[in-house]
Design a protein around this nucleic acid. Structure first.
Length: 308
DNA sequence: TGACAGGGGGTGT
DNA sequence: ACACCCCCTGTC
């Protein structure tokens, strides 16, 4: 038996293009309800994963974010990271286009979370994690996602020597939909999924018999893609909007959960409006980048609730 | 330290 | 409007 090869991490280096965020904004980006595979390490530092990419981020006040990753993944992640973090002109255009000049509450929320942005996650993984999300809080969703990766996913080859030392099942990939099609509902329930296990099982079986369905859906315009996603068991309007916004690059999606429903009632006078009507209002009022506005409002409202 | 009640970022009927 | 499922949190 040979000794396990110790995993080498790269040096810390600044992100390119740069990204200045407060610790609160960074926490909100990686652990504010878009993704469920990031864990806090030291002060202001987070370790997380998407697909097989494992990475650590840290922020120093006033400077750009720094990152490092397993040395074997360096080239892979260097290419993929800017897209994952949305370090591109689209985000710049979105910040310009949002109606903060005429909307004081939006402006206040944007000022409170400098650098907050949308993640661009893999479509299939986003669908899986948001199928877990119904009536669950972030902590619980993270728990389910951890178990899914640890028990049903494949180990990431570059991390096999240290997977035990990583938090939250990092070092394991989430199971693919293809792999999930062969997992029984009982085994899914063991991952704390509850009634969501049946949804995930049925979705997996459907996707297994329609191999191109997901990718075709991703390429559709927003309205058509949303209608298709809503055909899946366990996917309603809210989950569909989250999948399209956080994993499908559809900037106009405006997910309305109970937080946003309350926030819009309170801040925009939409008392007694249905989620559907609030979603429509959001897309009309905030425009082509409504989803980014939603993210700021969401972050602001959670912070306000914590302060109470 | 442990038991208990309340509530939860939604969907489907 | 209610069931689905059960884990987390706060409280005593």
């Amino acid at each position: 038996m040979s000794d396990p090869v110790p995993l080498r991490w790269t040096e810390w280096r600044p992100l390119e293009p740069g990204l200045c965020v407060t610790p609160a904004s960074l926490a909100e980006i990686v652990d504010g309800g878009q993704s469920f595979r990031w864990w806090p390490r030291a002060e202001g530092s987070w370790i997380g994963q998407w697909s097989e990419h494992v990475i650590e981020l840290r922020s120093h006040p006033g400077t750009t974010l720094e990152w490092r990753c397993p040395a074997d993944q360096d080239d892979l992640i260097r290419d993929a990271l800017p897209r994952y973090l949305g370090l591109d002109q689209r985000h710049v255009a979105a910040m310009r286009a949002l109606p903060w000049r005429s909307d004081p509450h939006l402006r206040r929320a944007m000022d409170a979370f400098p650098g907050l942005r949308l993640l661009r996650q893999p479509f299939g993984e986003t669908l899986l994690t948001f199928l877990c999300s119904a009536t669950k809080q972030i902590v619980q969703i993270k728990q389910m996602v951890t178990l899914l990766a640890q028990r049903l996913g494949r180990p990431v080859s570059t991390c096999h020597s240290i997977s035990d030392t990583l938090p939250g099942g990092l070092g394991w990939r989430l199971p693919t939909w293809e792999e999930l099609a062969n997992v029984s509902e009982v085994r899914l329930r063991d991952c704390l999924l509850g009634f969501r296990a049946r949804y995930i099982r049925e979705t997996a079986v459907f996707l297994a018999s329609h191999p191109d369905w997901l990718e075709e859906t991703r390429r559709l315009p927003y309205v058509d893609a949303k209608a298709r996603l809503c055909e899946l068991p366990g996917v309603g309007e809210k989950v569909a909007d989250c999948v399209l916004l956080f994993g499908g690059g559809k900037d106009e999606a405006f997910p309305v959960d109970v937080w946003i429903l309350k926030a819009m009632a309170r801040r925009y006078g939409l008392e007694k409006w249905s989620p559907q009507h609030v979603a429509h209002f959001g897309r009309v009022h905030f425009g082509a980048y409504a989803g980014l506005a939603q993210q700021f409002l969401f972050a602001f409202e959670r912070a306000a609730a914590r302060a109470r």
